[in-house]
Write a protein that binds this DNA or RNA. Structure first.
Lengths: 264, 264
DNA sequence: CATTGCACGTGTACCG
DNA sequence: CGGTACACGTGCAATG
């Protein structure tokens, strides 16, 4: 009776939304109140194993095992209180939202027929949200740990966009370099012979190192050779002579062609 | 008066939520009803130009210019109807949701003080959602047109995850191939490496190439030297002797220590 | 009809 | 206290 209080449970209030309540994880069985278990919100997108497949239906929606049920218990509690204590103007406007069946035209009649549709809508929406969060978790899992540090949906999409941009750029650059390399290799093979460069004559580049650490000297030589090789234009290495001795190491490189070597 | 109907406009209902109404784009001025303009939901993530920057604050929230205002007009209409016709039990539970100020404890008193806070909360939430949709649009913009075809948030995150996976895989594969190419660019090479592992002490590693391209030979030698240098454990290079001739090039490397060289 | 998807406003938790 | 972020239930549009 008394249809005031905007009536959160305008129906019998006993077994009104039994399916809804069960959907909240508040089954009537289990007298013990499920244990609080606050669990923190969402647990920071717990990065589940890659799980390349099988995220279809099986282990889905298990993350929300004992999670936000505190909300739900509170909701149920509020609803029950609003029903029990006749007074108490607790204006809880949109908790499970009465709105008997989205029939704004007229209020009476047609009371118990469609009730299950609403419940299924709720469940569908919840599942949709859960799936989306799952997708977020998956996406967050395979982002570099540096980016998307805040672990929020917004940050995740931003970081994903940036990461995709970076990956595409890297991929294109790598592909270009690969193609260039391939092309150069094919081109070089045909371009034999022209070792006789015009103005430049042969000369010898000498590199010496006093350190006794052969490894470091090797590193230096590798760097010099890389530099030399990087100057692809009209430069030919004709000989390399290296000696590692106790007091140091030296390296003579014979080259032909004009070049300008600036060892920083 | 009459605090029943859960009171969507429990206050004076004249200039109750003037800021809220203006936020809905329903300013009192403009007698013409703003024109319907359904506009479709979200316009399928209209892929705005890349806009690498400047999506900070300027042109933001302009996408919702004349968009869902139909909803809002309906909302306002419903609220006005609920206020005018005193009866009419139109249970509109959560439209702008009365809940005078989230003060569930007691209903009377403290009526007009905090009203703006709720409005700012609404605006903040709306802006957050809008930002997230913006991120979705950005992310969707740089996905391959084939994937994420359905243009839904869920599909977008899924497609983004798949795309990232594919990009990473492609990148690694490309990098590996690049390295392999660099290593084996001229597959004509006869890399005869002295892969004498065992407990050997001093020995000579011989590398020969038949190509006349000195640059490629240099690259190969650089790589060999890098490999050698990378084996820091108990390995010493004692001498390097290289000769570049017309018919090819060879390189002898004297090493000491046990090692295991596997030139793939 | 039923289903999918989205935006909305709200309540709550966490952080300065 | 205000700020941010999330999940929630709901209404509405569009698609079968």
């Amino acid at each position: 009776m008394d249809p005031f209080y905007f009536g959160p449970d305008q129906l019998d209030a006993a077994a009104v939304d039994e399916d809804y309540l069960t959907s909240l994880g508040l089954v009537v069985l289990s007298p013990e109140p499920v244990a609080p278990l606050p669990g923190g919100a969402f647990e920071a997108y717990q990065r589940r194993a890659p799980a390349l497949l099988e995220h279809s239906l099986q282990t889905m929606s298990r993350r929300y095992s004992g999670e936000h049920n505190m909300h739900r218990r509170m909701f149920s509690y509020l609803r029950r209180v609003a029903h029990d204590a006749g007074a108490a103007v607790v204006a809880a406007p949109a908790f499970p939202a009465p709105a008997r069946e989205s029939v704004p035209g007229f209020g009476v009649g047609t009371s118990q027929a469609p009730r299950s549709s609403r419940f299924r809508n709720i469940m569908r929406e919840r599942l949709r949200r859960e799936r989306l969060s799952q997708g977020f978790a998956d996406l967050h899992a395979l982002l570099p740990h540096g980016a998307s540090s805040k672990g929020g949906k917004n940050d995740i999409v931003g970081a994903a966009a940036g990461y995709v941009r970076e990956l595409v750029a890297r991929k294109e650059q790598l592909s270009a370099r690969n193609q260039e390399l391939l092309e150069k290799a094919a081109s070089r093979w045909k371009q034999q012979g022209g070792t006789r460069s015009g103005v430049g004559r042969g000369m010898v580049v000498k590199v010496q190192a006093e350190s006794q650490d052969h490894s470091m000297a090797l590193g230096a030589f590798v760097r010099v050779l890389q530099r030399l090789k990087a100057m692809e234009a009209g430069l030919q290495v004709t000989a390399i002579r290296t000696r590692f001795s106790a007091g140091g190491v030296w390296m003579n490189i014979g080259v032909e062609g004009q070049f300008l070597l600036s060892l920083t």
